[in-house]
Design a protein around this nucleic acid. Structure first.
Lengths: 341, 341
DNA sequence: AACATTTACTTAATCGTTTACGTAAATAAA
DNA sequence: TTTATTTACGTAAACGATTAAGTAAATGTT
């Protein structure tokens, strides 16, 4: 199958490649008659412009990169959905990279993306990321937009949710349901969302005169077995918490399982609220109280901000920052003693 | 910031661009001394090759496309994870496209990808896809590999799971648990996985002398409200099914909710088994019997097959086909009357 | 009628990399 | 010593699209 290029169209129509290119670009320099001839033949031969030739020449790739820690998490997969929707709409292509929560991967990916492959990037930093030079370096050449997990530098658009308030609200909710010893499960010491949520947590603890010594933020790093072990040790013993706030979705299953194994009843023995976008929260046993982030909207907003900037290099990305609120949905996992959810 | 190109390196080192290019490619034509000089300067100046220039010249993009119906489904997000892992490992980049189960999108995406942007594609067809010319056209130019939802043409690698057996097994399992009127919920009339699963279903129904008139495959197309309405009408009435097999994960929540609303107890009134990769299956109320597909392995296998082909154009993709078995995990949602799960 | 402008094209350079081909010097073979 | 081969580079042409600059003909202006 012969490759259909501008050159081929030019030969067939006895025109120069310049004319074809301009005609396809609907330039005013070309007569309507010629344009029609070009369009018709292009359609007939199924002409598709070579993306790389045009990218090379125009120094624009019409491609954006999305860097996320993982995709098997409802928040990120829904956000990706929002991103892809906006990208397609505007004729952009979406490259996906998973950092698997590793700083090294993040660095490697960003440095490879520096020249030519993408016009900009959307990212949610890894839980290991505690320095930002690699992102700043990238930011000097190409626009970046953060969503959810933001970095303090470079200065750019940050699409976040009201993490502080949600941390506060989740805690307050547990306190009002009768909890005295609340633990917030973290997955990182450096992550923006975690520090926001835990600040909200600590403020709520203070505002309600709970003992800060028994209400801590506990790191629950690792995968599979590790998480299970950590949770078991937290939930064992006399002074075990009577309230748990999971800052990420993937802790949910382990929390439920460990409680089951230890014979702890949710919500009677421990009340649980998770930051989660799982559709299945409502059919869990017991149904789960969640803080649901506006994942889809955040993805869309982030992509929109980046594409706006790509269209107009003069806009200031910082001003495109947005905070889209999350929603607390109360369900059985935090029901009070006499409550009937 | 000046762009670091081969030309710049050449000027600095007083060499030709050809020498630089060959040196970077570790060619035997270049002396070790020169190579070192080139490598060192490249590293110092943080040289990154322009992907588009090189793609244009070599007619290879080191990029693959992944077309999936949606990403907010555990199977696809886990499969994507497997794909990305293999891609990164081999230095490939991954473009993601969501078809949202629309044939039109699938066509549009494939036709745009025909020239230059990618070296090949991995796909799981949309539920609307009932003709394959668009995929065949693509296949004539670039290699495609199917995973999970395959098309009958073109002839190429198909990474699937044992859908027929699983359809049979799920049905048999329900029958043995005492079900007489089993309904399999489908989402498409044309999808390979659905027809495989429903053939298995029908064979099991026949083998166990159930009445095929009360054991049907019912289409459950649409989103949100539509699914809910369909399910309600199925589960209402005297002759309602006592067993349900959901062929896709996203039906799970609605099944549980509708049962709850209609006052039907799972598993006593209706037993449920879902094709699902949800981690939360085990903590649902009641815990859900699932057929879990090897999503990660399927993603990896599909990517491996494609990349193998890209490395060696002479291999026959058909021979790279693989069937990786799924696993039936029995939980409370299919427990018999006297069973204690 | 003389000159200016507009229209509708073409020519040729360019983006950054790769590579077929050329070549001069060094080394090996006869 | 002469000729063949190898080594280590350089020259220049691609890849396909875009675009600045040029041009001839048509149209407009005075």
């Amino acid at each position: 199958m012969e490759t259909v290029t501008i050159k081929l169209l030019a030969e067939r129509l006895k025109l120069s490649t310049a004319t074809i290119s301009k005609a396809l670009g609907d330039s005013h320099e070309i007569s309507e008659v010629t344009k029609k001839r070009v369009f018709d033949l292009a359609k007939e031969l199924n002409y598709v412009p070579n993306a790389y030739a045009s990218s090379l020449r125009k120094n624009k790739s019409k491609t954006i990169a999305v860097l996320i820690p993982e995709v098997a998490d409802s928040f990120f997969s829904i956000a990706l959905n929002g991103i892809e929707e906006v990208a397609i709409e505007k004729g952009y292509h979406t490259l996906i990279y998973l950092t698997h929560e590793k700083l090294e991967r993040e660095k490697a990916i960003l440095s490879e993306l520096l020249y030519g492959r993408v016009d900009g990037a959307l990212m949610s930093v890894s839980s290991e990321t505690d320095s930002f030079e690699h992102i700043e370096d990238f930011g000097k050449k190409l626009p970046v937009v953060f969503f959810d997990r933001v970095a303090s530098a470079p200065a750019t658009a940050k699409i976040t949710t009201n993490d502080f308030e949600c941390g506060y609200l989740a805690t307050k909710h547990l306190i009002e349901a009768g909890c005295k010893r609340i633990v917030m499960l973290s997955i990182s010491k450096s992550l923006s969302i975690i520090s926001e949520r835990s600040s909200g947590f600590q403020k709520a603890v203070a505002d309600h005169q709970l003992d800060p010594a028994t209400c801590e933020v506990v790191n629950c790093i690792g995968e599979g077995k590790t998480v299970h072990t950590t949770l078991t040790s937290i939930l064992q013993g006399n002074n075990r918490p009577d309230g748990i706030i999971a800052t990420v979705e993937r802790l949910t299953t382990d929390i439920y399982l460990v409680c089951q194994q230890l014979g702890l009843q949710i919500p009677d023995d421990v009340k649980v609220v998770c930051f989660s976008n799982q559709a299945s929260a409502v059919i869990l046993n017991p149904s789960l109280t969640t803080i649901t982030q506006p994942a889809f909207e955040m993805g869309r907003a982030a992509a929109k901000a980046l594409l706006k900037r790509l269209k107009n290099p003069y806009i200031n990305l910082e001003e495109e920052s947005e905070i889209i609120p999350s929603v607390l949905t109360v369900r059985s996992s935090t029901a009070g003693k006499n409550s009937t959810f």
